[in-house]
Design a protein around this nucleic acid. Structure first.
Lengths: 153, 153
DNA sequence: GGATGCGCGCAATGTCCTTGCAAAGCGCGT
DNA sequence: ACGCGCTTTGCAAGGACATTGCGCGCATCC
């Protein structure tokens, strides 16, 4: 991962906010010719600085109206215990985010559900069935205040 | 927000995973002519089903190596109290996600920091300075297990 | 049955992306 | 300071792509 100069960070800044901008306009915004810009973008993609491009779809349009934050504790922190839990949690499509955490709980999850009934199903069929779980604590998001797509401006 | 048919959801499915796909290829994948596909995509964007497109940039490439999950309680739940807190928290660029929550804490935040020293600065200059806060609880992500860009497959 | 509206495919035109190539910038060692 | 090699740039060309107008098919409704 090579070092990024000012033009690279400018490209990242623009494309984090507008992932479908044309290369021609991107080039103009960062003060480069289209060909040079295209080549830089290519390098950023292939080097892994840019992981991918994603459309942000309104969850409500897909009928997902609930977000739950789930705290989970396991019965131990052995590597095998963690690995088995993680393999299992990755299979649940409703789990959007999962972090291994320091602190009181071992994992924290962001889960999308269509409604309370749907969440009850997810909780029963997926979360409760995850291996080595000894405690689950679900809270529900009442409102989204911030959801930034970018890091570090 | 009109109802989405099978082709619309197919478009959303593809473009959530590959936001920079060409319209020609997208059309081919969903079994439509490029012109029809372009018009559908246009409608999805203008109706707000698609909120935007974003490149996913590796936080480490921008030197952001830490993710903190912060739980915050306020001194009350009056609308004015919440509104003042929310206006203030939106100004902090390190706060990537913020939800108003049910449960023990009022808000939950995902915060990006370059390192522990950077987080200490954010905590001191931003989080502690937020209005009406009576309790802050920070946990740190040890590892990211899942971070899906999509909702509902 | 005819009128209406919606969504499609086709075609054309203008724009854009990409690649080769030569020149300019840059660091570096002599 | 000079020259060398490496990197990156801008330009140009050819091919791909996006967009818009147009006519057709199909379903619905009168």
């Amino acid at each position: 991962m090579a070092q990024l100069d000012a033009i690279d960070t400018a490209i990242l800044k623009v494309i984090q906010q507008n992932g479908r901008i044309s290369n021609a306009e991107l080039a103009e915004r960062v003060g480069l010719s289209p060909s040079a810009c295209s080549r830089r973008l290519d390098i950023l993609e292939k080097s892994g600085v840019i992981n991918g491009y994603h459309a942000r779809v309104s969850p409500k349009a897909l009928d997902y109206k609930m977000i739950a934050i789930v705290h989970i504790s396991l019965s131990g922190q052995f590597a095998k215990t963690l690995a088995e839990f993680e393999s299992a949690v990755k299979l649940c499509p409703n789990v959007l985010v999962c972090y291994l955490m320091s602190g009181e709980y071992d994992y924290i999850l962001r889960v999308a559900a269509k409604d309370l009934e749907d969440y009850e199903r997810i909780h029963r069929d997926w979360l409760s069935a995850l291996p080595h779980v000894v405690k689950i604590n679900s809270s529900f998001a009442l409102r989204e205040i911030i959801d930034r797509p970018n890091v570090g401006i």
